[in-house]
Each structure stands twice: as C-alpha cells, then as structure tokens.
Design a protein around this nucleic acid. Sequence first.
DNA 1: AGAGTGATCATG
DNA 2: ATGATCACTCTC
Length: 213
Amino acid sequence: MPDPRPRKLQIQSKMNNRITRDVYHQEVVKLARTLLGKVFVRMDGNTRLSGMIVETEAYLGIPDKAAHTVGGRRTPRNESMWQDGGTLYVYFTYGMHHCMNIVAEQADEPVAVLIRALEPMDGKEVMYTRRKVAKKDRDLCSGPAKLCQALDITRDQDGIDLVTDSKIWIEDHGIKIPGKNIATGPRIGIQYAEEWADKPYRFWVKDHPCVSK
DNA sequence: AGAGTGATCATG
DNA sequence: ATGATCACTCTC
C-alpha cells in the first residue's frame, strides 16, 4: 500500500526512525526476532536502497558450534563480532560470496544475527543491475549472499556502526510481525555443528515470498 | 546433485 | 608454506 503522505514528509520521517543502540543491546535471539519487519537501508551515492528484513538467524557466540566465534575464536575476519551491539559484521566465503550480520549485545560478547532475506523496497532498479540472474523482485534479496550483492555490501562495510553511520542503518517503520506470523526452524548450512545444528535459531515471516529457499 | 571460487585459518 | 574448509548460489 503506497504511503499517502507527501514525499518530503515520507523521507523526513524515515530519517527519524533509525534504530538506536538499546535495541541492538538485546539478547541475540530476541534481536533476531525483533529485526523481522525492520527496514535495512544502504545509501548508494544518492540512491536509497532498502528492504524489509524477513528472515534472520541467531549465532550465539562462544558456545555455539556454528558460530565463527566458537570457542572464543578471535581473528582478523571475525573481529567485528567482538564489537558493540549495532556493529555490522560482513564476511566473505566460498571464494565469491559476502554475507552480513548485525552484532548484538555488548562488546566482547561475540554474538550476531545473520540477515538471510529482505523484501526489496527502494532502489530495485539498481539491485537488478547487480543481480543479473534475477527475474522477479523476489529473486533480488532472497538469500544472505544475494542481498549483499544487490545492496553492494562487501568487506569494505565490515565494522561500520549502524547507529551512527551516514550511509547504512536500520529503520523502524512501525511494522509489527505478530508472534504467530513468525516461523522458526534450524539454521541453514551448518550441518557440521553437531548438537547445535538442530537448534531453532532461524526465524522468518511466515509465507513471505522473499524468504530464502 | 555438483561445480565454482579464493580468502581464511589452523597446523607445522 | 600448505591444505582443508566454507553461516552460498546457480545450473543441470
């Protein structure tokens, strides 16, 4: 449904609803659920690229055998996970893909939320130019590496602070996903994680077409 | 179901 | 220095 307000007012209101530090300081599983329905924004020059978060996964840090920080591992790659809640953690994998996480809780608590899918909103034309294989809007951001390609998120953005950065942030548009519309299941691609592989730390908006397959 | 792709890190 | 691994995507 289109926003009936004048465009100038729409933009202004969007500027004023950036998520603040206290939200990121939540316990990581709670943050993974909270982020559903929030809007991720990336300014690409003067072009606003954005999408509503519809799928997330929580990574619980030191005890979590699926997390990059398992066992307290601290390396140049995962350094951002050790920073304060609200930091962006971007990693590169399989020789060609980037994925992005939202760091949760306090500094030195290396937990994060993987963003797995967005419903594209602003800047879809630009996203299509980056994702050549996309045929429909739902192909643009329906996977953790797809959305990074669509939004041009790379290691260059690793470590930025979503609370203060001038190009990248997350907004609250007042969209509340009721608990009964949130589906839960095991995380994807972590079969090696033994007893942690089956834990229900993946969350998505039930029946949403933009969720990853 | 298999290939692609190269940074990353533990090992020595 | 070396080699195994990989929080994925695409095509078949």
